[in-house]
Nucleic acid binder design. Structure first.
Length: 287
DNA sequence: AACCAATGCAACCGCCTGAGG
DNA sequence: TCCTCAGGCGGTTGCATTGGT
């Protein structure tokens, strides 16, 4: 997609007007060169002196979200998704804070992930993302599924690293300059999620009580949720977590909420390969 | 092939905060 | 204490792309 085809609010005949809309290759180069020479910061000054007819804010955003050398592109890995789910349960919509724990990922990217993937699920099931029910569903179905993915990819020798796949950079006219060093491994984080990390460890990262069935569960919520599963596709990590095949029968779900333990089992060590047909089966594996 | 709806994501907007005068 | 400004943040929008019919 040629960026220049997108509409830009300013007109070429009015040079004094601030440009808006998609950035052009020329603008990107100007910004990169200016920052290379003068460094980041003083964005309004930068905008004036660099010759860009952009606001300082726009320059800052373009640099931080797109042009900065250590920006990681491509799909979020299961590890990163897991971390986002975990940290969001802890901090809520503190995107920049969450982004600090995902090297190379921007708050904007994480926010988009949450809105387009996670909130989509909540909408499908008519569940508020802030509700205990939804938090519980994430912890009990989605996160284990991601752990399973991590497990599978590590056991097959394929470390899932979608970011290695080039993304169609329709809106970027050049690859950002390569990072001086590869993005820090997630292992280096204080909240690290390694392939070997098990569910209790993951959950202990949070203040959220993880007793898998601790939550006060409303029958109607789960009824809605289970019904919603019929309409969910299962083409992605996140969707697979909600696939009907991995959902409990409602009654079993309710029963299992009352007598389960968390700590003694290592989710990641269980062989979940092959689909788990229902929650009973899952809990047999787990317990 | 053409159309349409859904999706993903870059970019913008408005508000808030903190620093400096 | 007040004002101004820069920077940062979360929410929202616009549009190219994708997928389905």
């Amino acid at each position: 997609m040629p960026t220049s085809s997108k509409s830009i609010s300013s007109s070429s005949e009015d040079d004094s007007e601030v440009r808006r809309g998609p950035w052009t290759l020329e603008e990107d180069n100007l910004l990169i060169h200016y920052i290379t020479d003068h460094g980041e910061g003083r964005w309004n000054l930068l905008a004036k002196r660099s010759g860009l007819r952009r606001t300082g804010k726009s320059c800052r955003l373009r640099w931080l979200n797109y042009l900065k050398p250590d920006i990681k592109r491509g799909n979020l890995t299961p590890q990163e998704q897991l971390l986002i789910l975990e940290l969001h349960s802890k901090w809520g919509n503190r995107w920049s804070k969450i982004a600090q724990h995902l090297p190379g990922r921007t708050d904007n990217e994480i926010k988009n992930y949450w809105r387009t993937r996670v909130q989509k699920q909540a909408r499908l099931f008519k569940i508020d993302t802030n509700s205990t029910t939804f938090q519980d569903i994430i912890r009990r179905f989605w996160m284990p599924r991601l752990l399973q993915k991590i497990q599978e990819s590590s056991s097959s020798g394929l470390f899932v690293q979608d970011s290695a796949i080039p993304q169609p950079l329709d809106n970027c006219h050049q690859q950002p300059p390569p990072a001086a060093e590869p993005p820090q491994a997630i292992q280096s984080l204080d909240y690290h999620v390694s392939e070997s990390m098990n569910m209790p460890e993951i959950c202990q990262l949070s203040e959220y009580p993880i007793g898998p069935f601790h939550a006060i569960v409303n029958d109607n919520d789960y009824d809605t949720f289970v019904k919603g599963c019929y309409y969910a596709d299962n083409n992605s990590y996140e969707m697979e977590a909600f696939h009907l095949g991995s959902m409990p029968a409602l009654g079993n779900f309710e029963n299992s909420t009352s007598n389960s333990h968390v700590a003694e089992n290592n989710w990641a060590e269980n062989d979940f390969s092959g689909s788990v047909r229902n929650m009973d089966e899952l809990w047999q594996i787990r317990n």
